[in-house]
């Protein structure tokens, strides 16, 4: 880890982000969704759907902003061959990823704050919920890095990220499919990170956080394997 190198990459990616129209569009998705929910009268008060709605917004932000930012940054660096230049420089992979993650983290944070100010955030104001958010941020961050490194081009990266994002980011939406309580899909979806975060609000157990942490470790492994393949041309 080298602070100067991390800040150099942060500065570069921040400037690049500001000039990338597609990337600038992504945060607006969660903000618009929050405005729509708010217009429907959800949020703000003691609504029984508030927690569900908050996690829909959180899932959309983490998938459409956190993951997509990372996927796009990494895939673009790969496709345009600039990643090789970074890897050949004395900057370590951790420096590169940290610089980019700080950009993504900042954009995610701003998007989430704006969206949650619209819809309401009181249920999140406790240690377990906050830890859950941080762990999920790490999960979606690493998932994005991994997909970006794995894909050969920006187009392929977007294609791969779509189903993954729907699966992990839009998990709460499964409730809208009208599946039975005992359906296998509901059971499987139940262990997904976002659903575990919702679960946190129904229990005093720390188990959901443990399950989310396992997802984070899995995403980290996936990222590490994808990185190993990128370093050389063999």
């Amino acid at each position: 880890m080298n602070v100067q190198r991390i800040s150099a990459i942060f500065e570069k990616d921040m400037k690049d982000f500001m000039r990338n129209i597609t990337m600038l569009m992504m945060p607006s998705i969660s903000i618009i969704l929050a405005l729509v929910y708010n217009g429907m009268g959800i949020g703000g008060g003691e609504d029984e759907y508030l927690i569900f709605t908050i996690y829909v917004i959180v899932g959309v932000t983490f998938s459409a902003v956190t993951s997509v930012c990372m996927v796009t940054m990494m895939a673009e660096e790969k496709e345009k061959k600039t990643l090789r230049g970074l890897m050949l420089s004395p900057a370590s992979f951790v420096d590169i990823i940290t610089g980019k993650s700080l950009v993504t983290g900042l954009i995610t944070f701003i998007t989430l704050v704006i969206s949650l100010l619209i819809i309401g955030f009181e249920p999140l104001l406790n240690v377990r919920a906050m830890l859950g958010l941080i762990l999920m941020f790490l999960f979606f961050l690493m998932l994005g890095i991994g997909i970006g490194l794995f894909a050969k081009s920006v187009a392929a990266a977007s294609a791969y990220s779509m189903p993954v994002m729907f699966l992990f980011g839009f998990t709460p939406m499964i409730e809208l499919f009208g599946l039975g309580e005992d359906s296998i899909a509901i059971h499987i979806a139940g262990v997904f990170p976002i659903m575990q975060a919702v679960e946190l609000h129904d229990t005093n157990s720390w188990l959901p956080l443990g399950i989310i942490a396992i997802w984070v470790i899995a995403a980290a492994l996936f990222t590490y394997i994808c990185f190993k393949k990128t370093r050389t041309d063999d």
Partner: peptide
Amino acid sequence: GILSDNSALYERLTVHDNLKLFCKLYN
């Protein structure tokens, strides 16, 4: 130092911003 087919620049950034990045990366 390396200049090859695999060398590339950040297209959306200026000449100066590109070189500044590498200046900092190489200390």
